[in-house]
Design a protein around this nucleic acid. Structure first.
Lengths: 123, 123
DNA sequence: ACAACTGTACTAATCGAACTAATACACTAA
DNA sequence: TTAGTGTATTAGTTCGATTAGTACAGTTGT
C-alpha cells in the first residue's frame, strides 16, 4: 500500500500522487484497475477526504486516472498515460541531475552513485 | 550571486544554504574566504537578517563555514568541509536515484538522462 | 574611549500553504 | 429507495517560514 510520512515537508497529497504513480510503475496497478473511493482511502489512511480528492484531481488532470461520478476512479489505459507516468518519474530525476551538474559534479560520480544503488541487479 | 525563488516551496534559508554550497563546489568560493555579513547579505537580497543567520547557523553546524563574533563568517578550510559539501550535494542525487529505483526505472534510462544533460562535455 | 562594524539570542507578530471539518448536490447501482 | 460514488464550496485550524524589533557581546580602527 501507500506509505505516508506525516513528518515530511512533502504534502500528503503529493505523497499520495507519488504512491499511486509508483504502484503503476511497479505494475501493482494496471490500466482499468479501480482505485479506492475518496472516502474509503481517506478513512483507511486517517486523513481528510478532501486531501484524497485533491490528489485524485491532479492525477486526473495529468491523464493518469479518470473519475466517473457515481462509479469511482480508475487508472487510464491509453499509452499517453504511460508516458505521463514515466515523464513524471524521470522528471524528478532530471532535476537532480541538473542540480548536480550545476554544482560541477562529474558524470562519472553520478554513475557511481547509480551503480551503488543498482549493484544487486548488475551482478 | 545567489538566486532566490520566492515562489518556491523550498524555504529561503535552504536556498541560501544550497547557493553557498554550490558556490563552493564550483570554486567561486574557497576555504578562508569571508562571507557577506548577516545584515549585508540580508539587505542585499531583501530578506530578513534572521533568515540569513539561520542559514549560516546550519552551515556552521555542518562544518562548512565558521563564524567569529565581531569578525564575520568564513568558509572552512579543512578537508572535512570539502567532504561535507560533496556529501550533501551527492546526497540529494542519491535520493533521486533511490526514488527512481523504487519505481522500477532501469539503470540505462537513468544514464541516458545524465548523458542528455552532460552531452556538451562528452563530445 | 568611541563609533561602527561583526555574530548571536530572544520574543512576538505575520503570513501562507496544507489540512481539516462540515455540508451539499448529482450520479450510479443494487 | 438506499447506499455507495465523485464533485464542489466555505470556513476554520494548524504549523512552519518569515518578518520585525530589540538587545548583548566581541572586534576593529580612529
Amino acid at each position: 500500500m501507500i506509505q505516508l510520512d506525516y513528518r515530511s515537508s512533502v504534502p500528503i497529497y503529493d505523497q499520495l500522487i507519488n504512491g499511486i504513480i509508483r504502484l503503476k510503475m511497479v505494475g501493482a496497478l494496471k490500466g482499468g484497475d479501480s482505485l479506492p473511493s475518496v472516502r474509503a482511502l481517506a478513512s483507511q489512511l486517517g486523513i481528510n477526504p478532501n486531501t484524497v480528492q485533491k490528489a485524485y484531481a491532479i492525477l486526473e488532470e495529468k491523464g493518469i486516472i479518470y473519475s466517473v461520478s457515481g462509479k469511482g476512479s480508475f487508472l487510464s489505459e491509453d499509452e499517453k498515460s504511460d508516458r505521463a507516468v514515466m515523464e513524471i518519474s524521470l522528471g524528478r530525476f532530471k532535476e537532480a541531475v541538473e542540480e548536480a551538474h550545476k554544482r560541477g559534479i562529474s558524470r562519472e560520480a553520478l554513475i557511481s552513485a547509480i551503480d551503488e544503488m543498482y549493484k544487486e541487479e548488475i551482478k
